[in-house]
Nucleic acid binder design. Structure first.
Lengths: 189, 189
DNA sequence: GTCTATACAAAGATAGAC
DNA sequence: GTCTATCTTTGTATAGAC
């Protein structure tokens, strides 16, 4: 059975995911994390001796794994890659509007903040994006694309999604996502 | 002739642009801005009575105007939109690598941080992106695209560029930009 | 009106009680 | 081993000297 400390630990990571997705690494205070998770102050460095970086790092890898699982599911269900991307964009747009434009890509905000100033976290964001890209490239390759082109297309699709999330959140509108969605067929042509 | 205070003011905005592009709104301290710009401590609230938000706001609008000017120049020089985007991606990739992956999109990092928590700055980032989108849509329309499609394509191109910059900075590699660049013809087809 | 010194709050991290 | 209280630093903002 799961110990109580493990639940607390999980709640702290979940709170960190929510807060860093909306406001980034520097915008998320550990006090906020404790308040949102309901965890007591002293538990923080007990569960995360590496401090804030460890906590945010685990939040990033957790979000990365979750999206990767979603991608794997969609890759299995969808008839083709356009259908996969359509379903993904719908899910992301819904999640974003439901959160009042607080939720977009769970790693992008932190990724941009740490890219040139925090090696440990930069490496984690790089690996998360690399995993998603590979998942898309594999499906494109399975559908008959040559490997090098599958890599180019997968990165392009991922960039398109990430960019649409940036624009949608910046403009507080799902329209950029919908516009990009209408052009997916052309992008994958 | 320009007063000395105006130069100091301009240097503070420039320093803010550099720092917020790399580390975001919350990651940029006013002490850092003062250190990088060489401005004295007391000048800050003299030149920017609105404090940090005014300073960052002016940095964002300045960066927006500068990129808009670049877009206008490229729109005039380039033979077609693919050539325009190629030139833009080349310039952005060069700028990014030359800065050690500190420079990507000058507004994206802040845009993601403030989207759901700072109304004044969110509005500025929304307007900056809106201006860039319009600039691209106008050129597409001038090239013969129907207006609604020009909007869709312009937003798609902008999203693609923004996403490529996110991935490139996260992975500290210009390869995502190069991969996207190779797919531009297909996207605009 | 330009700058130095400082106030006040919040950050991250730790020490020690239980 | 779980939590309370505190320590140090850094953040933004302001007051007052010149």
């Amino acid at each position: 059975m799961a110990a109580k400390g493990d639940e607390t630990r999980a709640r702290m990571i979940e709170a960190t995911r929510t807060l860093t997705e909306a406001k980034g690494y520097h915008g998320t205070g550990l006090n906020e994390v404790l308040a949102l998770s309901g965890a007591p102050r002293g538990s923080l460095y007990h569960h995360f001796p590496g401090g804030k970086d460890q906590l945010v790092g685990e939040a990033l890898t957790g979000a990365g794994r979750e999206v990767d699982g979603l991608l794997a599911d969609l890759a299995e269900e969808a008839a083709d890659v356009p259908a996969l991307v359509h379903a993904l964009l719908d899910a992301l747009a819904e999640r974003m509007t439901a959160s009042g434009f607080a939720k977009g890509c769970p790693v992008a905000t932190v990724a941009l903040e740490v890219a040139s100033s925090n090696d440990a976290l930069q490496q984690i964001t790089a690996e998360v994006y690399g995993g998603w890209q590979r998942r898309l490239a594999d499906r494109l390759h399975a559908d008959g694309r040559e490997a090098a082109e599958a890599d180019d297309v997968a990165t392009t699709v991922l960039a398109l999604i990430e960019g649409a999330l940036v624009l949608a959140r910046a403009q507080r509108s799902r329209e950029p996502i919908d516009r990009v969605r209408r052009r997916i067929a052309a992008v994958l042509g």
